[in-house]
Design a protein around this nucleic acid. Sequence first.
DNA 1: CGATTTTCCGTACGTTGTACGAGAATAGAG
DNA 2: CTCTATTCTCGTACAACGTACGGAAAATCG
Lengths: 260, 260
Amino acid sequence: MATTAALSDRSTKTVTREDGSGTPGRDPQQLWLNHQQPQSQAQPRARRGRKPAFSREAITTAAVALADAEGLEAVTMRRVAAQVGAGVMSLYSYAPDKDTLLELMVDHVSGELTPSAALTGDWRTDLKTIAHLQRANMLRHPWLPTALSTRRSLGPNTLAFLEHALTALRPTGLDGAAKLEVFAQLTAFVAGHVTHELTQAAAAGSPDRAAAEARYLATVAADGHHPELAEALSAPARPLTPEATFTRFLNRLIDGLGTD
Amino acid sequence: MATTAALSDRSTKTVTREDGSGTPGRDPQQLWLNHQQPQSQAQPRARRGRKPAFSREAITTAAVALADAEGLEAVTMRRVAAQVGAGVMSLYSYAPDKDTLLELMVDHVSGELTPSAALTGDWRTDLKTIAHLQRANMLRHPWLPTALSTRRSLGPNTLAFLEHALTALRPTGLDGAAKLEVFAQLTAFVAGHVTHELTQAAAAGSPDRAAAEARYLATVAADGHHPELAEALSAPARPLTPEATFTRFLNRLIDGLGTD
DNA sequence: CGATTTTCCGTACGTTGTACGAGAATAGAG
DNA sequence: CTCTATTCTCGTACAACGTACGGAAAATCG
């Protein structure tokens, strides 16, 4: 479906994306999210027509704010447009479709992933730091795990962080593909864990749903066919903070990784 | 939004779900997806009105077939209805909303997760077997990782498999919460990996998109700011089968898990 | 038989992403 | 300055979605 749509679209949409310094759309055989340096002399094109009234940056920021405040499903083209004071269709001058806008959002918040300290050279330590950075970012933007699970961004911020991670993995001696995969897996792990955390937190927030679920599980556990589940559920509530639990699992995961 | 919707809905929808042997909806303070044993004498209720023309099972099966053939986004109420020969609104006698239908789908395919052999008692070996089962299922139903990332099912098949996994984890001596979390993480890991696999496979299938992406990444790599990325990308294509790669990562992950 | 209950489903509504194209703003050419 | 080419803005419109509503249809009970 995605492929079909892409192929039947206006013009060269199949393969291209966007480009340019933040101003509205260009046309032909171009690339992904703009990876140009902001002040690059590369292509300050477009010297003729009307001036852009908005910017990709402003639109993306508005979309992120919306998602932060009300969740991913609140991010509709109409609401984003309203937020920036634009007409709905004006957004399409800055991103060819909603999916691209989501990619832009992901890349935008990836900009907050600034390593606070230099790499230590011990890849395990460095990977743990990276994972903690990612977790913090996902907690700040709870929609991120969901957005990442479907999509993947190749924007400048995302790539910068990827570069950082690859550097951290250099001492492992793994080959390129393996390093990429380790990073992907680490990200998936963090996303999975944060999703779990958020679910638990949400359950604590709305007692109705959680209680009904607990009651149901109690029923199941009581039927005698699920002894292990019964036992697991009857355990006392864990006293650890989410942070501590995360660290424990992360350490297990990373310390266990061989280098072979 | 989700919360609001749930709370403002018709009646007891907030907390309850569905129940019954596969026939259309009952009413009050009931539980989740039906976890009754198929032939249980429990509640064969409803002796009065019109006979159901369809079944939850049939509808779920149709939805799964649709998702298998055309992807998750092809699963619309209209198309599912057409598939089973029902009117659109008839589906709502069998599942209160689309999200529930998706949960039913997840549980349905979880029914294919039948352990082929008994547990060995070595939890690492058993976990690996479990992970391979999950991977096979996700490859068979490529929409599963996506569906799982948002939702989680507590249907009978899902719970049966969870019970199996908990049993496998018994020798670890972990407490209940930890076992649940290990299982969740393992599932997330497999889902992440399969997503990666499928993405790569899809890229190989549609050269346009992949080529554009590669061209773009080459540009980025050439800018000199991403030396590690450049190196990682220049590595020769991996000669390993996806299966082998998965096994390698899985072994690393599981062998590394301590028991502390 | 009528009354009651349950399921079936046509119609309709609100919301979504976005195609289309008329009109406004800008810049260069004459 | 005017003319024209270019670029962006955005009102309107449409198809597709999930699903609320409620009458018709079928099954059971008295």
